[in-house]
Design a binder for these strands. Structure first.
Length: 309
DNA sequence: TCGACGATGTTCT
DNA sequence: GAACATCGTCGAA
């Protein structure tokens, strides 16, 4: 699928571009609306779009053709690659399968760095982000893990499912965090930050839907620089819990174009787990040094790395 | 840029 | 009833 200009709002193939009419779901996105409701809204609007498209095809074709190169004009003869049905297959050529996730937590947390997380929204729009920060949770022995002591509850069931299973939970009653289970009983990887790659305007609108109307504009690096921010930007909610990242059609992981070099990966203590005693100090957070989208830079660890090299 | 603080409701003991 | 793998805002430097 040809790349869209970064500033362009995403469009559904063969349909009017989003952001220009009352059928843009984001115009209906109300403060406090959950991502799940957003997904339902998108589905409803997509159905309306299809009906509208069929209607336009039979009634308004001459008017649309007269738009020429106008951004609202439909493609003269839609190529197969514009179809959401074809683009899916094509874009998945580098998709990472179940064997990728079947690694021990620490190895997998490092392996995630540089890979591309792709989310297909209900209207077919895709957003992409490069993984730049992860945390490993080792399961039963790990005092900071939700699965510590082998504790299994309805909430954390995804942690115990096969590698590649998503564990999405609500934190502080208002945010989501996304984990991916790995090899090892109750072990998983927390995805903490992404570097936005594609669909930045859609990410920005999804993020703004959770903020006050008067808030300042978000910089690109602020779109996904935190575990709950990336969930907002990719419209990931509790409905993704226990889905399989290796098989799911709405979200998947692709091989990144370049992996970070080993000496640029920082291993630092995890964030927000001060209650976990000695486990709070273990270097189980991994991030790409110097990447602007990393949520928390650990200057001390980076200085130690520099001194020892 | 950094630190303090309040919002928020699910989950677990 | 307490804890919580966070975030946005505000004020100070």
């Amino acid at each position: 699928m040809p790349a869209l200009p970064s500033a362009a709002l995403p469009c559904v193939p063969g349909l009017p571009r989003l952001g220009c009419s009352t059928i843009n779901p984001l115009l209906h996105f109300q403060k406090g609306m959950s991502a799940f409701k957003m997904a339902q809204l998108c589905k409803t609007i997509l159905r309306k779009k299809r009906r509208l498209s069929e209607s336009q095809a039979t009634q308004s074709q001459p008017k649309l053709e007269s738009l020429g190169d106008h951004p609202l004009a439909l493609p003269q003869s839609p190529a197969p690659e514009y179809s959401i049905y074809f683009s899916h297959q094509k874009s998945n050529s580098s998709r990472l399968g179940p064997e990728f996730f079947d690694q021990p937590a620490i190895t997998l947390a490092r392996a995630f760095l540089g890979q591309i997380l792709v989310r297909r929204l209900p209207d077919g729009t895709k957003v992409r982000g490069r993984v730049v920060e992860t945390e490993a949770y080792l399961g039963s022995e790990d005092e900071a893990a939700h699965s510590k002591g082998g504790r299994q509850t309805p909430r954390n069931k995804g942690m115990f499912m096969k590698p590649g299973t998503l564990y999405v939970y609500i934190i502080y009653g208002m945010y989501f965090c996304m984990n991916v289970s790995s090899q090892g009983e109750g072990a998983c990887i927390l995805l903490r930050s992404l570097e936005p790659v594609e669909g930045l305007e859609m990410m920005r609108q999804l993020r703004n839907a959770h903020r006050k109307g008067t808030a300042r504009a978000l910089k690109d690096r602020e779109l996904c620089n935190g575990p709950s921010k990336l969930c907002q930007a990719l419209a990931i909610d509790k409905s993704f819990d226990q889905r399989d990242l290796a098989e799911e059609e709405a979200i998947w992981l692709e091989q990144g174009p370049e992996r970070p070099e080993e000496h640029t990966v920082v291993a630092a203590p995890r964030i927000g787990i001060n209650y976990a005693g000695e486990w709070a100090l273990k270097p189980l957070r991994f991030y790409i040094q110097g990447n602007p989208s990393v949520s928390v830079v650990d200057r001390k660890v980076e200085q130690e790395m520099q001194a020892s090299s």
